[in-house]
Computed example of a mutant assay.
Amino acid sequence: METPTKRPFHKSISSNSFHLRSPSLNSVRLRRIFDLYDANHDSFITVDEISTALKTLGLDTDISDLDSMIKSYIHPGNAGLTYDDFVILHKSINDLLFGMEDLQLPGGNVTEQEESDLTEAFKVFDEDGDGFISATELQMVLGKLGFTEATEMESVKMMISSVDVNHDGQVDFSEFKDMMKALQ
């Protein structure tokens, strides 16, 4: 099967969003996201399914913009993106937004960009802005993302306790950074 020419993602986006840099975690995460977007489980993600998923996350998009961005990633004759197409689209967007981010300072120190990314990611979880991620906050974010772990508070508390070094029942920024470094 002939692979269509992929055009780079040219939409102007200004974001400091955090992304995981671990290839194995990214692969699992992408598969899970693909499966969540594929609402009818036909192994294709259509523009309508992506639009619906983005609206669920509170991100309203113009369907014609979304269609024009995605159609070059869909193989002719397919109803939507296959998982492999989705991975290529994700890589394109990731390279555009975070291409320079993987540069590290000598000695393996956290770069200013990485610190900024971690701060932004922490803010996503710390919904009340108190400087801590509580089990309730983690449960809310996991629920919004469609993770089944969000349905049981005990599972969420176990996630918190696995990184809660000072055993206060919450994750502070330092613990969050250590956890993210360990994932990398």
Rank of each mutant, 00 (worst) to 15 (best):
F9K: 15
K11G: 03
K11M: 11
K11P: 00
I13H: 06
S14P: 00
S14F: 04
S14I: 09
N16L: 08
S17M: 03
L20T: 05
R21L: 12
R21V: 02
R21D: 13
S22M: 02
P23L: 15
P23F: 12
P23A: 11
P23N: 14
N26G: 08
N26Q: 11
S27V: 01
V28P: 00
R29S: 12
R29A: 09
R29K: 13
R29L: 09
R29G: 08
L30S: 01
R31M: 06
F34W: 06
D35R: 15
L36E: 00
L36I: 01
D38V: 02
D38N: 14
H41D: 03
H41K: 14
F44V: 02
T46Y: 12
T46D: 03
T46P: 06
V47Q: 08
D48C: 10
I50P: 02
S51Q: 11
A53F: 11
L54H: 12
T56A: 11
L57Q: 06
L57Y: 03
L57G: 06
G58P: 08
G58F: 07
L59A: 12
D60R: 15
S64F: 11
L66Y: 04
D67T: 14
S68K: 15
M69V: 09
S72M: 01
Y73G: 13
H75S: 03
H75A: 15
P76A: 14
G77I: 14
N78A: 00
A79I: 00
T82G: 12
T82Q: 09
D85V: 00
D85P: 00
F86H: 08
I88S: 12
I88L: 13
I88T: 11
H90R: 14
I93L: 11
I93E: 06
D95M: 07
D95R: 14
D95T: 04
L97Y: 01
F98I: 01
F98D: 01
E101C: 07
D102W: 04
D102C: 13
L103Y: 08
L103S: 07
L105T: 08
L105G: 14
G108W: 07
G108Q: 10
N109A: 09
V110I: 15
T111C: 05
T111S: 15
T111W: 04
E115V: 02
E115R: 01
E120I: 06
E120A: 04
E120M: 10
A121S: 10
K123T: 05
V124Q: 01
V124E: 01
V124D: 00
D126L: 06
E127Q: 11
E127S: 07
D128E: 13
G129Y: 07
D130M: 05
G131E: 14
I133S: 04
A135E: 05
T136G: 09
E137Y: 02
L138W: 07
M140W: 00
M140E: 04
M140C: 05
V141C: 06
V141A: 03
F147Y: 08
